[in-house]
């Protein structure tokens, strides 16, 4: 059972991600802000972090990613950035994160990507 931490302010999407990933033996913990994400990551040690960029609460996705990379406990955790901004691939590369544009991606493709990042394929 792999653990995925999801940060996404649109709660409708929480359910959709969960619905798609759970059948693949992946548990999804969903939070809506960057601070909650850091706290959860440090206590739960997820196998993968799925990160939106535009987040409420003052920290954007890249702020979160940088902090995760700086903390030894999470510095090696794979990060998948899922966003609707398509101009930030370079910033994603800088924090060694994978990058997908949500609207242009089907849920099946996301599931495939997550599984490959968790070496489950």
């Amino acid at each position: 059972m792999k653990k995925v931490l999801l940060v996404e302010d649109d709660v409708v999407l929480h359910d959709l991600y969960k619905e798609a990933l759970t059948p693949h033996d992946i548990t999804v913990t969903a939070v809506t802000t960057g601070k909650e994400c850091i706290a959860s990551a440090l206590t739960n040690a997820p196998d993968l972090v799925m990160l939106d960029i535009m987040l409420p609460g003052g920290m954007n996705g890249f702020d979160v990613a940088r902090e995760l990379r700086q903390n030894p406990k999470t510095s090696a955790t794979p990060i998948l950035i899922l966003t609707n901004l398509d101009s930030e691939k370079a910033s994603a590369d800088a924090v060694k994160a994978e990058y997908m544009v949500k609207t242009n991606t089907s849920m099946d493709e996301i599931v495939g990507k997550v599984k490959s990042m968790l070496n489950m394929a």
Binding site: D10, V12, L13, L16, E19, A20, N84, L85, K102, T103, S106, M107, D108
Partner: peptide, 17 residues
């Protein structure tokens, strides 16, 4: 465009689901 993308994504994934 970005504002439009978010609901379009939700619609897309809901239909896919």
């Amino acid at each position: 465009a970005h504002q439009l993308r978010a609901p379009l994504t939700a619609m897309r994934w809901n239909i896919e689901s």
